[in-house]
């Protein structure tokens, strides 16, 4: 267990704490856009966790998962926002 592995584990722990705090905001968020923001932060955290896991295990295949995830996070937040906007205009 070198100091490099220890620092990677510390980073992994920090990102997990981030994930827990973002889920707290996801639960208590007073409005729907707050939840979309928390979801965005989820995706960013997951990309970071995948990167650190790739570095920890040396398995290079996981980085493709990060590419796909960055694409899908953008698409999902845009479609959530579009759905909210459409519902608002229908109410008027």
């Amino acid at each position: 267990m070198s100091i490099f592995h220890i620092s990677l584990l510390i980073a992994l722990t920090g990102l997990s704490v981030c994930l827990v705090m973002a889920s707290i905001r996801f639960a208590i968020g007073p409005s729907l856009p707050d939840r979309i923001t928390a979801f965005d932060l989820f995706v960013a955290n997951m990309i970071g966790i995948i990167a650190i896991y790739t570095e920890l295990t040396g398995n290079e295949d996981f980085i493709d998962v990060a590419i796909i995830l960055s694409l899908f996070g953008f698409l999902s937040s845009i479609s959530f926002a579009y759905f909210l906007m459409k519902r608002t205009h229908k109410n008027d």
């Binding site: 510390i10 980073a11 920090g14 990102l15 704490v17 981030c18 705090m21 973002a22 905001r25 923001t37 928390a38 932060l41 960013a44 955290n45 970071g48």
Partner: peptide, 11 residues
């Protein structure tokens, strides 16, 4: 990781 942690505390 430090930047992410600070951003999440801000959230």
């Amino acid at each position: 990781t430090l930047f992410m942690l600070i951003a999440t505390i801000g959230l």
